[in-house]
Amino acid sequence: MSCEHTQQLLDAYVDGELDVEKSLAIEQHLSACPACRKRHEARRWVRVAVQSQARYFTVPDPAVRRIQAHLDKAGGGGRTLPARWLSLAATAAIAALLGSGTTFWIGRTSSEDLLTQEAVANHSRSLMVAGRITDISSSDQHTVKPWFNGRVDFSPLVVDLTAQGFALVGGRLDYLDNHPVAALVYRHRQHLINLFVWPDDKSAAAPMRAFARHGYHVLHWSGGGMRYWAVSDLNPADLKAFGELLATQG
């Protein structure tokens, strides 16, 4: 590949948007061409600078309350469940008391559908509420795993997969399928993954199943006496790779 062609495709290359064949051609060129290597390094640098230094603005609570008020006026049914919108911070606490199925129930759904709804709701709620994503923040599995002692009556498998591209962010206690569950949080690039783990009442392992729901991807399986539900906005292929890494660890 020529220098000119390499430069044209450099952004698509750093963004992971090229097919394998073109990526390999670029890699070959980079290993042989110091000038393009420098350009590539500069690209990496500008991306790191923006990702680490440009602010991600989060919506202020009063703005959410104003939207709530407008929907109430429009007859949006907010009166039936007023607690939901009182504040985002209150949402998690109330949902934990009620069980999230109460909030997101849509009726006549299979248990798998319902659990998918619940898991997605838990995931999005964990992202929405500042400080809610983890109760214990650590990339060290030997810090995160013992944290669950006494909080749940089982010992979840906690593995750091940083080397495989899935960094452990931490853990928290959550509530799913009428159980307290261990929620383990992983990060892959900018995408967060919630992995919910709790004991399986069936002894047989269940194969992996994948779903998409409201823009999120869900993957679940069981093995070694535990159920695993992973939720993320990560693409299905990467989420599957994550699940398979964990399934082989268990």
């Binding site: 007859g75 949006g76 049914g77 939901r84 999005s124 992202l127 929405m128 409201h214 999120y216």
Partner: peptide, 24 residues
């Protein structure tokens, strides 16, 4: 659809992405 279920749908579909919406 009735307003209450529309409101619930709004919360499922829109609410999770409100930060992304605000950031943009």
């Amino acid at each position: 659809m009735p307003n209450s279920s529309k409101r619930a749908q709004f919360e499922r579909v829109v609410l999770p992405h409100l930060n992304a919406a605000y950031n943009l």
